[in-house]
């Protein structure tokens, strides 16, 4: 679905008239359309998260109903105008802070944007669905192009994940070989005796055939593993809840007690439409990591959380 021309004109007009650095229309935490002088994609992502988190104030202060958010520094101002429960306008102005101007721009634009709220929500739903399909069947995904969602970023995200998965899976192979329950001394002695008694050397022909068959056995490719991930992972998911609990603890350790609420919310949202597989947990860890603002702590969390998966 295309964005109406009139809406784009309205945004461009606000951007020019108020000499803004950034203006974006958000549904929940997703930027649907924006205009900015910034070259960084991260700005809209961080802005979206800020909006999402500020909307959660309603859970703490009942009927708070956000009207606007404002912050200023020496030479910038940041403003969010909450049009409706899930629809907001985010603006950044560089220069002498001007609260009144931003509030008026937000107010005027909000009146106009209300007309397009259904279309904006439809675009949001389409995008959410597109992303979900893409994650499930990467090649058959519908390609709905909106400038809002950063496809390249998603591709990079999966690339990293696949590399990580490869590491985890290859490590698991060794783990499985070593993960045989240690037999007791009695068992060893009995087995040894039985082996000694029943041992008959196989004919040379048999040994050679077996060896050739062994050589033929090749480890499955990563693609095969990923395509089979539903069934494979289900088998290997023995203590996923326990692992998720440990991941939660790691997350709370990095982000503080609010992490408990956030983890619960993210977990419910993420696994609502997905199976709890190792692959999905890996992606879930990345999703959680995005909530940790300090890079060092974020990396620490990813490392610790992934090491928990190795033990799965």
């Amino acid at each position: 679905m295309e964005l109406p021309e009139e809406l784009l004109d309205l945004i461009n007009k606000a951007y020019r008239d108020a000499n803004l650095y950034y203006i974006g229309i958000f549904i929940k935490n997703k930027e649907i359309v924006s205009r900015t002088s910034s070259k960084s994609d991260k700005l809209s992502i961080s802005f979206g998260r800020l909006i999402e988190r500020s909307l959660e104030l309603n859970e703490i202060l009942p009927n708070f109903k956000e009207e606007f958010l404002f912050s200023e520094g020496k030479d910038y101002s940041l403003f969010v105008y909450y049009v409706e429960e899930e629809l907001s306008i985010g603006m950044i102005h560089i220069g002498k802070p001007n609260f009144s101007m931003l509030k008026i721009v937000g107010l005027d634009l909000a009146k106009e944007i209300k007309k397009y709220k259904d279309q904006l929500k439809e675009i949001y739903l389409q995008e959410v669905q597109t992303i979900t399909i893409k994650e499930e069947t990467s090649e058959e995904a519908t390609q709905v192009k909106q400038e809002v969602f950063k496809q390249d970023e998603n591709r990079d995200f999966f690339k990293d994940e696949i590399n990580e998965l490869e590491k985890v899976l290859s490590f698991k192979e060794y783990e499985l070989k070593e993960d045989i329950t240690q037999p007791s001394l009695e068992d060893i002695l009995t087995t040894q005796k039985e082996e000694e008694l029943s041992y008959e050397p196989p004919p040379l022909e048999e040994i050679l055939t077996a060896k050739t068959e062994e050589e033929k056995l090749e480890p499955p490719s990563l693609e095969q593993i990923i395509s089979d991930r539903g069934s494979v992972s289900e088998d290997s998911l023995i203590n996923t809840e326990e692992i998720l609990e440990k991941i939660k603890n790691e997350f709370v350790r990095e982000i503080g007690p609010f992490g408990m609420l956030l983890f619960k919310k993210k977990k419910e949202e993420y696994f609502k439409t997905r199976n709890v597989t190792k692959f999905e947990i890996l992606k879930f860890i990345q999703l959680l990591a995005e909530e940790i603002s300090v890079e060092k702590r974020r990396n620490e969390f990813i490392e610790n959380a992934k090491s928990l998966l190795i033990n799965l």
């Binding site: 708070f64 606007f68 958010l69």
Partner: peptide, 8 residues
């Protein structure tokens, strides 16, 4: 500083 205005 950051402030949020709500209806209440």
């Amino acid at each position: 500083q950051l402030y949020i205005k709500g209806s209440t």
